[in-house]
């Protein structure tokens, strides 16, 4: 039987004692999928729940393995590369150190392995700045660094929380290209986004989160064409 990448069953998560995620059921297949929704609906907390960073109840299975209750480093070692909201690069490490200190052979075969060299190929601008400290970069470069840092773990799933946030349109274009390149290497990607235009360019498969629960799963294009549904779930249209 073909395993889904992520299966979430009745997942509840708490952030600072507040009950944010209130019963999420979700099945994510391979390829590129997204979770969208307005601000404050619990998308980021759901990501943190998957990564084991917040108090979580319920069941989250990653390629069939239960990960609720594991520590973040154990979950990462199972093959999840986390690119958090706000990037969270390290001011005390250089760009190059970001790409080497946590590098792992992970789950990629030798030909497909992501090394710092391959990341520099993907993001030439990072190579030019490899000795700069992690937070001395522009917004777009920091996003590239955060993605590169997750890639060198050679994960089976990339988790990105609002990757397009605060980025200029030209950078966003580059980001779309990058996702295309990574996707072609059979990397599974889960994006959490508020920017629907960006999301559309990357994937059509979406799940809408409303008030801590999943309210819709399906095609993003169809959702956007349905004015009434768009307005109800996303507040636009």
């Amino acid at each position: 039987m073909h395993e889904s990448v992520l299966t979430l069953n009745n997942v509840e998560a708490y952030y600072d004692k507040l009950h944010i995620v209130q019963g999420v059921n979700l099945l994510l297949d391979s390829g590129v999928t997204s979770i969208i929704g307005r601000n404050g609906m619990g998308k980021s907390t759901l990501m943190k729940a998957i990564m084991g960073l917040v108090s979580t109840k319920g069941s989250i299975k990653f390629f069939g393995q239960e990960i609720v209750g594991l520590k973040p480093y154990q979950i990462a070692q199972k093959g999840i590369g986390y690119v958090p909201q706000g990037r969270r690069n390290f001011p005390s490490l250089t760009v190059d150190e970001h790409l080497t200190f946590c590098a792992s052979s992970g789950f990629s075969s030798e030909e497909n392995r992501w090394s710092s060299d391959r990341v520099y190929d993907l993001f030439p601008r990072l190579y030019e700045r490899k000795d700069l400290y992690g937070t001395s970069l522009s917004g777009g470069e920091q996003q590239m660094l955060a993605i590169g840092r997750a890639l060198v773990l050679n994960p089976r799933l990339l988790l990105l929380d609002e990757p397009s946030e605060g980025l200029a349109p030209t950078i966003i274009d580059q980001l779309v290209d990058v996702f295309e390149k990574i996707r072609k290497e059979n990397m599974n990607i889960l994006i959490v986004e508020q920017d629907l235009n960006f999301c559309e360019r990357v994937t059509d498969s979406t799940n809408v989160m409303v008030n801590g629960q999943i309210a819709f799963s399906g095609s993003l294009r169809e959702l956007r064409n349905n004015a009434e549904l768009s307005r109800k779930l996303l507040g636009i249209g």
Binding site: L53, P72, Y73, A76, L93, E97, T100, F101, C102, R149
Partner: peptide, 23 residues
């Protein structure tokens, strides 16, 4: 490498853990 991990950990230890390192 340990030094790099420590420096990163002082910055943001949850993130270091999220990158697969047993902090």
């Amino acid at each position: 490498k340990v030094g790099q991990i420590i420096r990163a950990g002082v910055d943001d230890r949850d993130m270091v853990s999220s990158l697969g390192i047993n902090i």
